[in-house]
Design a binder for these strands. Structure first.
Lengths: 338, 338
DNA sequence: TCTGGCACTCCGTCGGCGAGAGTGCCAGGG
DNA sequence: CCCTGGCACTCTCGCCGACGGAGTGCCAGA
């Protein structure tokens, strides 16, 4: 176990390095933070920290920079989550309240997050797995052609075209619509299959085929739309990544283009609270010099999706975490209201 | 007017510079292209080309690089559109045919274009201005809360929440839905306002407020959705932009995040065929060292949207134009089929 | 009008040098 | 036992000057 002061030294190193982007030496440390000890003592502590793998030197006789392990300790033990100032909070709320629909909410959120953290923001669309059905609509577009519209409680609308083998009468269609809604409205997606299972039995033989087709399409839509979508923003912040550009930035941009990668990235964060993945903790190798701060958000108690930011491992963790958490909360509120 | 050989020299300079990214000198030119004249002659020609503003030297006694004006001449007069090879064409077709819905078509298109050109691809969603209404649906979510769902013939669905001052009865709602659809289905968006103008008159006084609100929301949705959306891809190709990274890439990334800028960019391209905007021809200053190649595409004869690529002014124009044109054609086909 | 030759200019690279920052270690003191 | 000041050492970075190479511009001759 590291002594109190050594932890303090580590914290100081992280803070300084994050601020200056330059390796930090013992002398500068004692000057900028009042550690009450001499540079020599700090040097000894640094030697220990280096032995333990928390910091490293780019080369002999340079200052130290934190390792991934060092950041990990910093995040876990040394740093809290920095709450946002109240003007910031107000700004968030005002900005998000202007949104007119779900797309707009998500769009604003990603811009907001990118701006607040000055990093790349990732926002997942509210997932449908935990969602409930608000309404199911069936429209007759042509004699043997239906359109199924599914509206979720998160405000998302999905539609599917259905080609039936045989035309269905208006009365039967209205009946189906009514029965369908009375059974599934307010229910969770996962419950729907068992709830509609026996619906065809209530119809005349001639309509059963069509009813089954409709139900199959509905279930399919529920499953398909569970594959979450997401959007990203603030990629221009990548230019503030480091000095050695192309090599660093390239794999990150590539990773960001792969929605699959990002979804996995957010999905891995199982933690009920905030999750911070630092450097090599990210399995995707293109992101080995980045950290990902993510958190779930939702309209109620449960998280329906995740959002977060991607930035250099050398990032302001407390500030970033504060911004991410605050944004998640406000988005949750907005979603709950609408 | 420049002599034939001088044009040939310009063409050679553009081609070499695009290939090597380095200023090209008179000697290298005579070696790589069989111009049948000596370096000295080429030097004289280059001096003339420089006087005319088609090429420039980064500094005295360096090779020449084309100016925007030089590229312009090259594109207009010296280079054709390089058709894609038939394997490439097949690949495009196969790739696009796998798409399952509109989102997927657009998504695949942007990836395809980015991959083919190794540049940043921009694809605009099919515009709604030329679209027609397929169906309008009104749902009662709560006593005084409605949802409006608009379905277009391009398969797009838009929804809006409507808060009414007073509840509206089921019968009146069904009536409104029926009247609305009978009037607007199959009509172009631009026609809708005049078609629904007098609808409130058909209703009882108590419902007129609500009906008006619904109509207002519908019209608003039509207008808002006419503001086209677009998606981009292949941003990681920006890393191949040049050597002086942050300065070049930054404004481009920023411009790419501003949908407004991009929409204007594509919108400016009035040309019925392909449009190429080179360097400073782009009004947005962040894009002054990039060229934009764009073209309209559509399901029928009419272009319903645009797509294109953004890359360094030093790009392979014939190849890029060929790829852009080919992709636009195939996307048009796919859209027409669906 | 084209060609070969020649002098000139300028960039990029390389080696050397000095300054600065930082370290590791050691001996002494609380 | 831990902290401190001192000292010698190392390494990077920036600067300077020299050098080679590539390319140009110009001129005289064919």
């Amino acid at each position: 176990m590291l002594s109190e002061r050594r932890l303090e030294v580590l914290r100081a190193i992280v803070q300084d390095y994050v601020g200056t982007e330059e390796p930090v030496g013992s002398k500068a440390l004692t000057e900028r933070h009042n550690l009450q000890v001499s540079p020599a003592t700090v040097r000894n502590d640094m030697a220990v920290l280096e032995d333990e793998g928390y910091i490293a030197q780019p080369h002999t006789s340079a200052g130290r920079i934190p390792t991934d392990k060092g950041y990990r300790l910093f995040v876990d033990k040394l740093a809290g989550v920095k709450p946002l100032s109240s003007p910031e909070r107000r700004a968030i709320q005002n900005f998000l309240e202007g949104a007119v629909d779900l797309d707009d909410v998500v769009g604003r959120t990603v811009r907001l997050l990118a701006q607040l953290t000055r990093q790349v923001a990732v926002v997942q669309y509210p997932s449908l797995t935990r969602s409930t059905v608000r309404h199911v609509e069936l429209l007759s577009l042509a004699p043997a052609r239906l359109m199924l519209v599914l509206i979720t409680d998160t405000g998302r609308v999905e539609q599917r075209l259905i080609d039936c083998q045989e035309p269905i009468g208006d009365a039967a269609l209205a009946d189906l619509r009514a029965r369908l809604n009375s059974r599934v409205v307010g229910e969770r997606f996962t419950e729907v299959p068992s709830l509609v299972q026996d619906l065809p039995d209530a119809f005349e033989a001639e309509d059963r085929g069509t009813v089954s087709t409709v139900l199959a399409t509905l279930l399919e839509t529920l499953v398909e739309e569970t594959e979450e979508r997401l959007i990203i923003g603030g990629t221009s912040n990548l230019t503030r990544f480091g000095h050695d550009f192309p090599l660093t930035i390239r794999p990150v941009l590539e990773a960001l283009e792969e929605q699959v990668v990002l979804l996995k990235l957010l999905g891995e964060a199982k933690d009920p609270g905030m999750t911070v993945r630092i450097g090599h903790e990210n399995v995707h190798e293109g992101l080995s010099s980045t950290s990902v701060v993510s958190v779930g958000y939702g309209s109620g108690d449960e998280a329906v999706a995740k959002l977060g930011v991607v930035g250099p491992t050398r990032m302001d963790y407390p500030g970033t975490m504060g911004a991410v958490r605050a944004v998640a909360r406000y988005v949750g509120q907005i979603l709950a209201e609408s």
